[in-house]
């Protein structure tokens, strides 16, 4: 919003934890935040993490209290790091399933599930697919109660390609995109 001749201040936000940099120390990802700040805004980094400003910040506290605070922050950071690791593991373990379902003899729909784990909004993806392939695409709940993206038409290859590229963009290459087929049971032959 802030434009010409405004009174608005522009505030710098940390690229890692989105806090203003002076609050990074409370965020739990301090080490990463520091790295980011050093790279992007060295002047701010020097100002914030120089010796005297650190001394100033802790001057009012007694030594014991200081240690306690530090310990707690470390604990928080460890917790946060653990959480991030777990999330990453979960991400690596899960996969996107692109399922081809036969509707009638020559008509198919494609059902995509498992994208939301990777931070992709199924609804938005549905919209992109709908305009991309000029077909209907919607988000429904499947049998397991999970969101599933249903695209009309036999567009499995394109969908696979697009999802893979989307994942790569997010730096998540190596995620499996699985193709399966689902045929309704054949009616008994006459």
């Amino acid at each position: 919003m802030a434009e010409e001749g405004t009174k608005a201040l522009s505030v710098l936000y940390c690229g890692v934890c989105t806090f203003p940099p002076e609050y990074c120390e409370f965020g739990g990802t301090l080490t990463k935040c520091k790295e980011w700040l050093k790279e992007e805004h060295l002047d701010v980094f020097n100002e914030l993490y120089s010796e005297d400003s650190l001394a100033k910040a802790t001057e009012g506290l007694s030594l014991e209290a200081q240690e306690k605070v530090e310990r707690e922050i470390q604990k928080l950071q460890a917790k946060e790091a653990n959480k991030a690791e777990k999330e990453l593991k979960k991400k690596l373990a899960s996969k996107v399933v692109v399922k081809r379902v036969e509707r009638s003899k020559r008509k198919h729909v494609i059902a995509v599930s498992g994208v939301e784990v990777f931070g992709i909004d199924p609804k938005k993806l549905a919209k992109t697919f709908a305009s991309k392939f000029a077909t209907g695409a919607s988000v429904t709940k499947n049998a397991e109660g999970k969101d599933e993206l249903v695209i009309q038409g036999d567009v499995g290859d394109e969908v696979e390609e697009y999802v893979t590229s989307l994942l790569e963009e997010k730096g998540l290459d190596g995620i499996k995109v699985e193709r399966t087929e689902d045929k309704p049971k054949k009616k008994s032959q006459q």
Binding site: L9, P20, F26, A57, L61, E72
Partner: peptide, 21 residues
């Protein structure tokens, strides 16, 4: 953050930050 001086404000001590956050 953009217009810090235009609102009534108070200041807390350092010890409180952690809890507020």
């Amino acid at each position: 953050h953009k217009y810090p001086t235009y609102f009534p404000s108070v200041k807390v001590d350092r010890g409180a930050i952690k809890f507020i956050l």
